[in-house]
């Protein structure tokens, strides 16, 4: 079992949280580096959103299940995914979690409980109640966590999903990572108000909006929310207010974003904030921080080497796995 998966009890240390965020950042930066080197598959990175992923996933138990979306690397890595197999999948190699048939956008890793990843915005919302229905009817204490963004919250399926989960009493922890951008459109153009969390009230559902760039705050909120879902078998909506620090996808382009907005959010970078806290508290030295960064980078370089050395799927794989 990975450190992240077993970390629900006892609670992870602040250093664990930092290390987990640094791994995600290093993974995404490795992908950015690939793009700098030449043609590489398009990827939607989660740079800037590491605290939401690490905070929520660290609050889960091994028998919980996660549904995620196109911006999923943080969720997968926080759950203990092997970055080599992730990068292999991104690069369409047969050693990837989906045998190279997913690509970056739809990676599922059933062995980690990260299932049915859909890149149709809102697809994860449509699938979550059914997964939770299985949990309800087939037994077990696990809950279902559904990560989606503010963009998906503007899809009609958001309403259908939360409404059904509420009227059927399904154990879903909905996690809205409100990263302010819906592909190439700012959420101010598409939403009334700044937050998705309060929309839960319409479904008789409890909700909480948390500073999504403060990993400790996210962990605390997610622990409470997950415990409530576990106990009541009722859905809950947790909103993590965060920021997509890069363009919608790589290669990077933020020419349509107000530089002042980027600057304001970079000042709230989740990794910098926790690092500063640990340095101030004397729990970490600058040298220790640099060592953690280096460790994460080296792990991702090794992952990249594994992926690059992996074979492509055989052409005979083209039409396998279509039907059961």
């Amino acid at each position: 079992m990975s450190p992240a998966m077993s970390s629900a009890s006892p609670a992870p240390s602040r250093l664990d949280l930092l290390a987990a965020m640094l791994r995600i950042r290093a993974y995404e930066e490795r992908i950015v580096a690939f793009h700098d080197e030449g043609p590489f598959p398009h990827v939607c990175t989660s740079v800037g959103q590491e605290a939401a992923a690490v905070g929520v996933v660290s609050a889960l138990r091994p028998d919980d299940q996660i549904l995620t979306n196109h911006r999923s690397a943080g969720h997968l890595l926080a759950r203990g995914a092997d970055p080599g197999r992730l990068l292999a999948e991104v690069m369409g190699r047969s050693t990837g979690y989906c045998k190279g048939k997913s690509g970056t956008l739809h990676i599922s890793a059933k062995e980690l409980g990260v299932i049915l990843t859909s890149t149709i915005v809102g697809g994860e919302l449509s699938l979550a109640p059914g997964v939770a229905l299985s949990r309800s009817m087939l037994g077990g204490e696990g809950i279902v966590v559904c990560f989606f963004g503010d963009g998906a919250a503007c899809e009609g399926i958001f309403h259908e999903s939360l409404n059904l989960a509420s009227v059927w009493n399904l154990p879903v922890l909905y996690v809205c990572e409100n990263n302010q951008w819906q592909a190439f459109v700012h959420r101010k153009e598409t939403m009334t108000g700044d937050h998705v969390g309060p929309w839960a009230a319409a479904y008789g559902m409890d909700h909480l909006t948390v500073d999504g760039n403060d990993v400790e705050a996210v962990l605390e909120a997610a622990t409470c929310a997950a415990a409530q879902v576990r106990q009541t078998r009722r859905p809950f909506l947790l909103e993590a207010s965060t920021y997509r620090q890069r363009g919608h996808m790589e290669p990077h382009d933020q020419s349509y974003v107000d530089p002042a907005e980027i600057e304001a959010w970079l000042a709230k970078d989740p990794i910098d904030r926790l690092s500063a806290r640990l340095l101030d508290a004397g729990e970490l030295t600058p040298q220790g921080l640099e060592a953690l960064r280096l460790q994460a980078r080296e792990a991702m370089n090794a992952a990249a080497a594994f992926a690059q050395a992996s074979p492509f799927p055989d052409p005979s794989e083209l039409t396998t796995d279509v039907y059961a």
Binding site: Q65, I115, L116, G123, L125, S126, L127, A128, P129, G130, V131, A132, L133, S134, R135, M137, L138, G156, I157, E160, S161, N163, L164, V167, W168
Partner: peptide
């Protein structure tokens, strides 16, 4: 044996999610 809302999107999605996880 369940009634649902008149909401075909979530009926189909729920069927797919349930089917993939054991029902």
């Amino acid at each position: 044996v369940r009634n649902t809302p008149l909401a075909e999107g979530i009926i189909a999605g729920t069927a797919a999610g349930a089917a993939a996880t054991g029902l």
